[in-house]
Design a protein around this nucleic acid. Structure first.
Lengths: 184, 184
DNA sequence: CTATCCTTTCAGAACAATCTGAAAGAATTG
DNA sequence: CAATTCTTTCAGATTGTTCTGAAAGGATAG
């Protein structure tokens, strides 16, 4: 019987994981594939994924490729079988590191770079206006101030993630303790 | 002349901020509106936004509503003017808190809740199978283990964000120092 | 109350992301 | 090597999201 509590919770988890996907910059199907691999206790092949998620072969193929590129999924070969099989990276800290790296590359780095360029341009413009129009200068100075704030914040968030990943699972208790102390 | 370095960097920043938006679960226009308000040194009205971003009145209206609901933008009235004006929350830490709260509500809480339900179901199922099919039990136990890992990680990330927001800007240097020490 | 000015709403249009399925490409087997 | 089995690719279809513009809904002034 296929609606055991086990299979119910499997599909519940997979569906939810997929729904979350959009906000993680990952397509629903890609997330569902990852979820299914994550909770399976053996490598799965393309047909397993097609059957269980009801999506086309091409779709599975494309999404697996991305997952493999990211490093969230590995290809494995079963001895005596022509098919390729796939397993998910299952250490949640490792997953966190991979996803964070990817998101940083796409979300943080481009904006940091843009802010840098903007700041340079504003500095230039301020030089031009050295001893003229006071209100325009004030406008520029304020713009630059806001960019500075943003830049500072992003840089900080960046290093925080780096350190967190380095510190890793083992010492997270210590981190929490310290933060708790500082928060008081 | 409208292509001064100032206006160039304004539109550069706005465009990039808008591009980042997708991955933050925010539509491009919504982000552009926020960006424009963020870097403006005075409140802007609907027509300002329409002109500068080249989008329709309805679009501006809808997106402003969301921004106001989130708390990233405030309505303000100019004495002697019938129009409504808008200003952005400009403290980046405040922005961080608001966005984090929103994302947590949409991304973390639902999956945590789902994992809880799955764990309950698996516990139930294990009871049923108390003294039968060993391989099926092993499968369930492993599934549960992975859910536990995930749950632990999410809970932790959650408290980390809470503490970070509490600690705030002023003490971030201390946080970094501590983390640096632990990372070694 | 009426005119004026501004905001909100929403059906349908425009655009964007994702998926399918069939055809082409690789790899393995006998 | 031809046959078989599996994988990848991509044009076009499907689905989902965002935007427009016009109409309806306030609010204020006279």
């Amino acid at each position: 019987m296929s609606s055991s509590l086990l299979s119910q919770s499997r599909s519940l988890f997979i569906r939810r994981w997929g729904e979350m996907a959009a906000s993680w910059g990952i397509s629903r199907t890609m997330a569902e594939i990852h979820a299914l691999l994550f909770i399976s206790n053996r490598p799965l092949c393309t047909d397993d994924l097609m059957d269980q998620l009801q999506v086309s072969r091409g779709n599975v193929s494309m999404n697996l490729r991305q997952l493999v590129i990211w490093g969230l999924v590995d290809r494995v070969h079963q001895r005596g079988d022509r098919k390729e099989y796939f397993v998910a990276e299952c250490d949640v800290w490792q997953m966190f590191e991979i996803i964070t790296r990817e998101r940083r590359r796409r979300e943080i780095e481009p904006i940091v770079e843009t802010i840098d360029r903007c700041r340079d341009m504003l500095k230039e413009e301020l030089k031009e206006l050295r001893r003229s129009k006071d209100d325009k200068r004030r406008e520029i100075v304020q713009f630059r101030q806001r960019l500075d704030d943003m830049q500072e914040f992003l840089t900080l968030a960046n290093s925080l993630f780096n350190l967190l990943v380095k510190v890793g699972k083992s010492k997270v208790g210590d981190v929490m303790k310290t933060l708790g102390r500082l928060a008081r």
